[in-house]
Amino acid sequence: MPTNHQFEVFYDGECPLCMREIRWFQRLDKQQNILFTDITADAFDADELGLDMPTMMARIHGRLPDGTLVTGVEVFRRLYTAVGWRWPVAASRLPGVRQLLDLGYRVFAKNRLRLTGRCDGDRCAVN
């Protein structure tokens, strides 16, 4: 990961809902603190991260400059921090709020292919 980025987000470029949010973060990222990596691009290789595509598709992933991988709601906390929106991050860590966000994201991630009309056989079997 280039050192001039605070965070790298790995996103599903074929997911319409995901792309809407990614485009929003791209507009907010005036300082170019975020490296955006589409996991559906031909050049992407999950093996370079020590992961496989089903794992990458199961939930959102991100990478810190030191190579540490983060997943789920923590990715969104890092994105908001990178664009200078610290108040949603603080709110997301409040007792009760944290658990609700984690649960909501797990439900969404498990059903996102179905919710975005992208089911075709085994593709909805995201764990």
Rank of each mutant, 00 (worst) to 15 (best):
D42F: 01
C124T: 04
R20N: 11
K30A: 12
E8L: 03
G117V: 05
K110W: 13
Q31E: 14
N127G: 07
C119L: 15
D122I: 12
E8I: 14
N33I: 07
L51P: 04
V70A: 05
R27T: 08
Y11H: 10
L101V: 08
L101Y: 00
V126R: 15
L115C: 04
C18W: 09
Y105D: 10
R78D: 00
L49A: 05
L100N: 09
Y80M: 06
C15A: 04
D122E: 14
E48T: 14
M1A: 13
F108W: 15
W24L: 07
M1T: 13
P2D: 15
F10E: 01
T3M: 05
T68G: 12
P54T: 04
I60R: 08
D45C: 05
R106C: 05
V70F: 04
Q31I: 00
A109D: 09
E48M: 11
H61K: 10
T68N: 10
G62I: 07
N127A: 13
E48A: 14
V9H: 10
V73W: 10
G13W: 04
R23G: 06
G50C: 09
L101F: 03
Q31Y: 05
R98W: 10
P95K: 00
R118I: 06
Q26Y: 02
R98T: 08
V73A: 11
L69K: 08
M53Q: 14
N4P: 00
L79V: 07
D29L: 03
R114S: 11
D120R: 12
L49S: 06
L64M: 15
G62K: 09
D45L: 02
Y80Q: 07
P88D: 09
M56P: 08
E21L: 12
T81P: 01
E74C: 00
F76L: 11
D66N: 15
V73D: 01
V75R: 13
R86Q: 13
E74G: 00
I60H: 08
A41D: 15
R114D: 05
G62C: 06
R123E: 12
R112Q: 06
A109H: 10
R123W: 04
F7W: 05
P88A: 11
T40D: 10
F10V: 03
L113R: 15
A58F: 02
R114M: 07
G13C: 03
V107Q: 11
W85L: 15
T37E: 05
M56T: 06
A43T: 14
E48I: 01
A82H: 02
G84I: 06
R106F: 01
I22F: 07
V97Y: 03
F10Q: 02
K30G: 00
A82S: 13
H5R: 14
Y11I: 01
M57F: 10
W87N: 00
R114C: 01
D47R: 15
V73H: 06
Y105A: 07
R23E: 15
A58Y: 02
L115R: 11
R114P: 00
E14I: 08
E21Q: 13
D29T: 04
M53C: 02
P16I: 11
Q31C: 01
E21F: 11
F10K: 05
V70P: 05
C18Y: 08
R78N: 12
T55E: 15
R86A: 07
R112H: 05
L101P: 07
Q6D: 14
G84H: 03
R63L: 10
V97E: 05
A109P: 02
R93K: 13
F44Q: 08
T40K: 15
N111V: 06
G62S: 10
K110S: 06
D42I: 07
